[in-house]
């Protein structure tokens, strides 16, 4: 039996009500917002931050971003949810540096998967953060990305960790993945 995936629709401007009601000012519904707690996992602590920029360079301040990554041993299991509805649109993730992961007889370079939804985004956007210091030569996913665009998937070291800005459009448009 084969059927087609349900069509996607935008999460709209009020996605925070549904996915993080405490953060959105609806207290008392849930004990806490899923994915908002501190990340407790094996590995070297690391802080990532960034913002999402539209085709005119404006910060997208109504998005929700989800994270899925491996811990320091390369075992997937860390999930988190963040909003970009602060004044400057920055999201911040205090996590651990993922370890390399086995895939198809080889190794994938350490990476953090992101899924982004917001008003104006018709299908949740999947992308990945890689770390510039790592060896990416055997990574089966990066191998599919034109070399000139791979830099859009690299975190940029900054004062207290890394920065990863997501460009929805423009000359630096982030590579999004059709998984």
């Amino acid at each position: 039996m084969t059927q087609r995936e349900s069509p996607s629709q935008t999460a709209g401007p009020y996605v925070h009500i549904g996915l993080m009601p405490n953060h959105a000012g609806l207290p008392g519904l849930y004990d806490g917002d899923l994915g908002a707690g501190p990340i407790m996992a094996e590995g070297q602590p690391v802080t990532l931050r960034g913002r999402i920029l539209d085709g005119e360079g404006a910060s997208v301040t109504d998005a929700v971003l989800e994270v899925w990554q491996a811990d320091g041993t390369g075992t997937p299991g860390i999930w988190a949810r963040r909003s970009t509805d602060g004044p400057d649109g920055d999201w911040v993730l205090d996590t651990v540096r993922p370890g390399p992961m086995r895939f198809d007889g080889g190794w994938m370079a350490p990476h953090i998967a992101l899924w982004i939804v917001a008003r104006g985004i018709n299908l949740g956007l999947q992308t990945r953060i890689y770390f510039p210091e790592d060896d990416h030569s055997a990574d089966a996913v990066l191998a599919q990305v034109p070399p000139g665009r791979r830099r859009t998937l690299m975190a940029v070291p900054d004062a207290d960790g890394y920065r990863f800005d997501i460009h929805l459009q423009g000359p630096d448009e982030t590579v999004f993945l059709n998984i």
Binding site: T10, G35, D54, G55, E56, A58, V60, W68, Q69, A70, P76, G77, W79, M101, R102, F103, D104, M108, H111, A113, A118, R119, G120, I121, N122, L125, Q126, R128, A140, V141, Q144, V145, L168, Q169, E173, T174, V175, F176, L177, N178, I179
Partner: peptide, 26 residues
């Protein structure tokens, strides 16, 4: 849908194999 004009990526998403990152989840 006006909001999609500046927020929709202009380049097609790049097809990748489903790896353990995509086949596992919370």
């Amino acid at each position: 849908y006006r909001s999609s004009r500046l927020r929709g990526p202009t380049q097609a998403p790049i097809a990748i194999p489903a790896t353990p990152t995509e086949t596992t989840g919370p």
